[in-house]
């Protein structure tokens, strides 16, 4: 299986270890991984902020870059950015040619955990992580892409892991893109419910599928001086600790 990695700008620039881990996991699972260096961003910040013409520009560029790769699938370590690709068609409601190209790209674009479990049927990649961990359902992965069991199965396939369910696992962390800085007090009030549940779960790490949620949750945890780590699922799956 030949896959093209859609790394996302956030992982590329802020959290490269998620990307290197994702490459390692995909290779262990038997995939040939390619990375097109022309890629930048899917345009979600503009789309979610109401600037559709800017979003359209980046979406077209994304489609052009990814549709010419001779690959079986496009895989991304982000539910949110994958969901954005699935939303591309809404940007081209009045442009049938581009709309169809957007639909075709979306059909081939998969979120990381969903790709492993549902597309190539891999649930054990030989990872080891000793300790209690919990999972935060990132909203777009959960509610746009309906990814719920896949990451849990991958976590439970990790040696040494004691998995505990968060009492509000499916509640939003309050990130919401520009929402986090437009309404920081509301964003953090929402976040603090999540943080309280994480602390109550008494875990070594909280795992999620989106760097944006991990930035929000992790930023509050370190600010509070908490010892709980945040890990992307890909990072957990390459752990040997």
């Amino acid at each position: 299986m030949r896959v093209s990695l859609f790394i996302t700008c956030l992982v590329d620039q802020m959290w490269p270890s998620i990307g290197t881990s994702a490459v390692e996991v995909l290779r262990r699972a038997g995939c040939e991984v390619i990375f097109d260096e022309r890629q930048t961003c899917c345009g979600q910040p503009a789309f979610n902020s109401g600037y559709r013409s800017d979003a359209r520009r980046l979406a077209k560029r994304f489609i052009e870059i990814f549709e010419d790769g001779k690959v079986d699938a496009i895989v991304s370590p982000s539910g949110s950015c994958t969901a954005m690709v699935h939303h591309f068609q809404e940007l081209f409601a009045n442009d049938e040619e581009w709309r169809q190209r957007a639909v075709r790209i979306a059909e081939r674009t998969h979120e990381f955990a969903s790709f492993l479990v549902n597309v190539i049927g891999v649930e054990d990649v030989g990872a080891q992580f000793k300790g209690r961990v919990t999972w935060h359902d990132a909203c777009h992965g959960l509610r746009d892409l309906h990814i719920r069991e896949e990451p849990r199965r991958l976590i439970q396939g990790t040696r040494g892991v004691e998995f505990v369910e968060l009492e509000n696992a499916d509640a939003c962390c309050g990130f919401g893109g520009t929402f986090a800085v437009k309404f920081p007090e509301i964003s953090v009030a929402i976040l603090d419910s999540k943080i309280a549940a994480i602390e109550k779960a008494n875990v070594r790490a909280v795992v999620s599928g989106d760097a944006s949620c991990l930035m929000q949750i992790g930023g509050r945890l370190t600010r509070n001086g908490s010892s709980v780590r945040v890990l992307h699922l890909a990072e957990l799956l390459t752990a040997q600790e």
């Binding site: 777009h140 509610r143 919401g176 893109g177 929402f179 309404f183």
Partner: peptide
Amino acid sequence: PFASSLCGA
């Protein structure tokens, strides 16, 4: 319309 994290709940 901006006072939402777009969580979809």
